[in-house]
């Protein structure tokens, strides 16, 4: 089972992307998420400063009510231990 399916809900990617403006930064960010294999991605935060954007991207692996695959038979159910 891919590790991706052990993610409870979403996976955030935070980075700094060199670009000319916020729009370009967002476009590049979403391209990055697509390259990483996240089909359900969004820009949570993006702010231009100096040479690029400080950006936070989110790929939802499971939205609520989805068909969660952490249930896979080979995966032990995860209790409350931390």
């Amino acid at each position: 089972m891919p590790v991706k399916h052990r993610i409870l809900d979403g996976c955030d990617v935070e980075t700094f992307i060199l670009c000319n403006d916020v729009d370009e930064g967002k476009t590049l960010g979403l391209r990055l998420m697509a390259e990483l294999g996240f089909d359900d991605a969004d820009v949570v935060f993006c702010e231009m400063g100096g040479p690029g954007v400080r950006i936070r991207l989110r790929g939802y692996v499971y939205r609520p009510s989805a068909d969660y695959r952490w249930y896979g038979p080979e995966v032990e159910q995860h209790g409350t231990s931390t």
Partner: peptide, 9 residues
């Protein structure tokens, strides 16, 4: 953030 559900992290 209004674009989606709140996440665990």
């Amino acid at each position: 953030y209004a674009g989606g559900p709140i996440t665990a992290p």
